[in-house]
Design a protein around this nucleic acid. Structure first.
Lengths: 168, 168
DNA sequence: ACAAAATCATCTACCGTCAAACAATCTCTG
DNA sequence: CAGAGATTGTTTGACGGTAGATGATTTTGT
């Protein structure tokens, strides 16, 4: 807690007294509160990514849906929601948009008519390939402050926080 | 109970071919998308913390405001916003609540009458001490999956990530 | 077979955050 | 000194995400 050697002088009128402590408090905070540092870093990364993808045809969640469909085949919205950690009610609009763009189809599940079988179309496959290609430089820019090894370490630690078994 | 290998598990149709790929897709995703892993890990940590603090008198942002005031002395809301990375318009309500609880005072800044000099009261100092005491086990639980050394590494990487210059 | 519980997708209400507009005040320039 | 422009605090409205209820459908229990 730094033990406050200074008697907390009142906010100095002009900016002249920027002796540093006040303007650089955020750095001190991150030393004590890893949760705050993690949270702010995440918003910075997300912001950087969404900014670069803003003009594109796909949002991040939409990209993830296409990516999972390509990886595991047709899915119910429930399965997409669970694996991608996107709320069910958000998934509705996400699939709505993708279906409107012709990138997925909603077919009734053959043996459980409560569920849909969301299926990737040919256009969806093409859109995914293009999105994957565009993704690499975007990720690279968002994590530019870290070396490849540091990025790997960060990924390992976040997976551990998520209880995902290491895939080494 | 549950010892029966009976596949009578619900939703048999498509689940039957769950060789694992479908149900564990999230793990595969985190290997390719460190940004998604980071984002989901952050929400998990934040959720854990806010859940444990839900009954308490202070929210996380309020705690941070008291903490910064104790560290650097009286501040304008602008300075609090900048250093804590909390939007100005959010800071208004935050300080409102703290003032209503008698933990801070809003005094007019002596030489800039646009700004307030938000000042910690004696009650605020006491509330902060109590909140600081309660924080350690909460943080420890949120990061329970990591060893102390891993937590330090994560903190170092997130701090490094926060130096990412704004993309222009 | 019939009723009760569970599940999938959807919709609605609510909460927190962010961008833009606003009035009051400061600073700088001519 | 006057006025343009920037800064501080605040309010407003839009947006995105979450929780809870609903309707259709399937599974389970008797």
């Amino acid at each position: 807690m730094a033990t406050a050697p200074r008697p907390a002088r009142l906010a100095s009128p002009s900016r002249a007294d920027d002796s540093g402590e006040r303007r650089r408090y955020f750095a001190a905070l991150t030393l004590e509160r890893p949760d705050v540092a993690l949270c702010r870093a995440t918003t910075a990364v997300a912001r950087s990514i969404e900014e670069r993808l803003s003009g594109g045809p796909l949002t991040v969640p939409q990209h993830l849906v296409l990516k999972m469909l390509a990886a595991v085949g047709s899915c119910s919205q429930q399965e997409l929601s669970e694996q991608l950690r996107i709320d069910r009610s958000v998934m509705v609009g996400c699939v709505d948009t993708l279906e409107g763009a012709g990138l997925v189809r909603r077919e009734r599940h053959p043996r459980d008519r409560r569920a849909y079988a969301v299926t990737l179309t040919a256009e969806g496959t093409a859109a995914l390939a293009e999105a994957e290609r565009a993704m690499a430089p975007v990720l690279d820019h968002a994590f530019a402050a870290l070396t490849p090894q540091e990025r790997a370490t960060l990924a390992r630690l976040t997976r551990k926080l998520l209880d995902v078994p290491p895939a080494d």
